[in-house]
Design a protein around this nucleic acid. Structure first.
Lengths: 183, 183
DNA sequence: AGCGCCATGTAAGTGGTTACATGATTGT
DNA sequence: ACAATCATGTAACCACTTACATGGCGCT
């Protein structure tokens, strides 16, 4: 399940160019499976080389040519293979949480800044995801709806945790004060 | 905020060997910042080279020598620098969600297997995290407690979402059946 | 005049993962 | 006997990121 597989999956909805796919990565997969041109174009080239996709060069006037990719039968087989993995990973890598582990080495102002920025980020994400059904959102597959809902749900809960528990991170400062006044 | 920085942060709690740190990565940072020997040892070597840590070789009988690392003043400065980043990242990369986007290309049995495995994984994690205060858990910093709570909270909410919405992923199958019976 | 969109790609770099190599001791 | 724990490290590999390169069109 790498970028190649996701590209393959996208193509089951119909032909698309690398540029199109980048946009779909941004709008649908961005929050849990980011990919830039530097991943997509090589992935597509590789898939074409292995015969899992085909492409047609479509000249356009006033705009650069497009390479429109379609999935092949061999590609469908390969995709089915990838989808048969019974334990797909769900990885988190959080510099944010790592930093919070060392909150006692930071000033209250620093902690507040980090937390406020994170909340703002979350709100931006949530308002992006909340957009009440733009035209193409209606035709989303049940899977895509499940995943979008997943993002909203988990992020909302994450937000709530931060708001409800941010005071915890100042405890050390309080404890220190207690120690200082006690001694 | 890479493995080097986290190592540096760990050393503010006192000297430790690479082996020790690996264990702490597993017990505390594993779910949001995994690291194996292949990251830790080179990181430590690099930190020592830059003078951010020092080490003492401690011979042991019956066991291999240990290299016990301590943070230097220069290391503390570098750590403070890293902790001043106002927008630390929190990245998710989920093959699981990517796969669920293509649930309509999978059989119900496959979907169930993936979901059941994921739930089992979550339960294993949750029961690991729930351990009611082992001796060292008591001395956890407020930051570490915040992060542990974060993991529990978000994972619990994630679990709930999967349980409450897994039926959604079978909708397409139902829709198809409807279409089939309708035509 | 300048920015942003369309559209494709390459090259170098980053950082982490996996597998290998070594070897004594302790537990089952 | 066999596996696990303690303990350190290297080397090859992988996948993604960032920056660069190109270039016309349309908007302000």
């Amino acid at each position: 399940m790498d970028v190649k597989t996701v590209c393959l999956g996208m193509l089951t909805d119909g032909p698309a160019s690398g540029y199109d796919m980048k946009k779909r990565f941004e709008s649908c997969f961005g929050h849990f499976f980011p990919a830039g041109y530097g991943s997509i174009y090589p992935a597509l080239a590789n898939l074409a080389e292995s015969g899992l996709v085909e492409f047609e060069e479509v000249p356009q006037d006033g705009k650069p040519d497009r390479k429109v990719y379609s999935i092949t039968d061999k590609g469908r087989d390969a995709l089915a293979q990838s989808l048969s993995n019974p334990s797909p990973a769900h990885k988190v890598r959080s510099e944010f949480l790592a930093m919070m582990c060392f909150a006692h080495l930071m000033s209250e102002a620093q902690i507040d800044t980090v937390l406020d920025n994170k909340l703002a980020e979350i709100d931006a994400f949530l308002s992006m995801m909340a957009e009440p059904c733009n035209p193409e959102r209606r035709q989303m597959s049940s899977g895509a709806r499940f995943v979008a809902g997943f993002g909203r749900h988990v992020t909302t809960s994450l937000r709530k945790y931060i708001e409800d528990n941010r005071d915890m991170l100042k405890q050390r400062h309080n404890e220190e004060r207690k120690l200082a006044s006690g001694s």
